[in-house]
Nucleic acid binder design. Sequence first.
DNA 1: GACTTTTAAATGTCAGACAAATGAAAATTG
DNA 2: CAATTTTCATTTGTCTGACATTTAAAAGTC
Lengths: 250, 250
Amino acid sequence: MKIDPSSPADLSVQIADAIRDAIVSGDLIVDERLPSEAELADQFNVSRPTVREALKRLAAQSLIRTQRGATGGAFVNRLSYTDAYDQQVTTATLLLSMNAVSFETACEARYALERACAPLSAQRHSADHIATMRTEIFRQGQPGLTDEAFCASDVAFHRALVDGADNPVLSYQLAGAVEAMQPLMNMITFTARSREAIVALHTAIADAIEAGDAGAALTGLHDLEAETLKLAKSVFEARNRVKADAQRRP
Amino acid sequence: MKIDPSSPADLSVQIADAIRDAIVSGDLIVDERLPSEAELADQFNVSRPTVREALKRLAAQSLIRTQRGATGGAFVNRLSYTDAYDQQVTTATLLLSMNAVSFETACEARYALERACAPLSAQRHSADHIATMRTEIFRQGQPGLTDEAFCASDVAFHRALVDGADNPVLSYQLAGAVEAMQPLMNMITFTARSREAIVALHTAIADAIEAGDAGAALTGLHDLEAETLKLAKSVFEARNRVKADAQRRP
DNA sequence: GACTTTTAAATGTCAGACAAATGAAAATTG
DNA sequence: CAATTTTCATTTGTCTGACATTTAAAAGTC
């Protein structure tokens, strides 16, 4: 592993890239210990702070973990589904909030992805998944639930639906998309009537999954998407009306 | 923004988290300049190297960018689709390679997600997307193409299919899943016969998308998934046979 | 007024030091 | 001898202070 001191790129970036490449290519395997910071500094011919900045970059991506003490050091980290999932959620959340992604676009993506899981989930779900879905549906029907708690329960319901497909790769991808939607969903106020409609659709979907009826599950998800969009539209229209009024008579 | 010097967590982690929270919550907006490293060091009551390590952590996630010079500093970065996409690809690639995800699992996830796009793509594709798909199909039929080039063209074909849905959120999610599969796909050797079969299926899918026939596109994707799985199975079986032979007569 | 030079501010890098954690070896104790 | 305690070397975490480099704005020059 070599770096180019005359390159315009920062040394810590070059070092981080070199180590990252070594990990991705398999030159460094999981749980292998990297040389100590002092040794790396020698090898790359840079100072220890520079090496440290490089290592922090890798740590931020969960590529390595560090341990203090006599037998400590930096170790190649096995990227867990949990780590990857967390990263995906923050990335997706920021992407949506910073790029003014419309509610329609995000919603469409989310339900399209969920429909990808539905047939598999109908086929493979365990009793646990169904139980979770029923529990969340019950919670959603409770009066006095805040809008935020309702949204959180909604996410839990859909996670169970996705996890029912019993494919960790699919779960990891989907969980990010579903959870990243939550800030957008939290902008919506749910009336008692709209909650009732959503709970009914959730019930229909859970029934379909439990019965192994993929077609019905897809229909349910389509209806839920339409309902969500309708709801969002009315909320945003009401908000715009208020805003327009405020501008007319400031 | 405050940090706790007595906390077990590293100071640079605490500082990075504090700034990240400020960005996510909207306290720091896009393109806003953060205080200089010296000022941050004062505010958090730590040294400049510690602040720098925190900033490098954020830079690794594309949350900030830094600029040198008189009017330089760290600025809140607008997370672009490209940045998010790159991050997703490295994360997904590592996740698959480090967790011994089976070809079947990854393949299933990939095609399930693609099928989520197909109906939208059939409905909304532009002439460009169809042209790209046709170009890649033609390339895949060329004799003398290396297996790696064939895989790369395959990825390009599927990207066009996904982009046809005209939903950037969907494209971003899917691109990661499709591209992360490439190292696994590269393990396969494609015979002339198997390439022929794949090209035929690609053609059927492109035809269906162009005709706006979502059902046919879904069928095509199902068939392609089955074909890919069959192919992988035979390749892996052959490989295992060789390995077993080698063990018997070392 | 247009061009060149200077300057100040910021990040990038370096060197050396000490603090704190931690496991292993050495010393102590029963 | 075995168990426990102590010491110790190693490694990361943090601090201080300095210099290099980049960059845009200010000052100076023609």
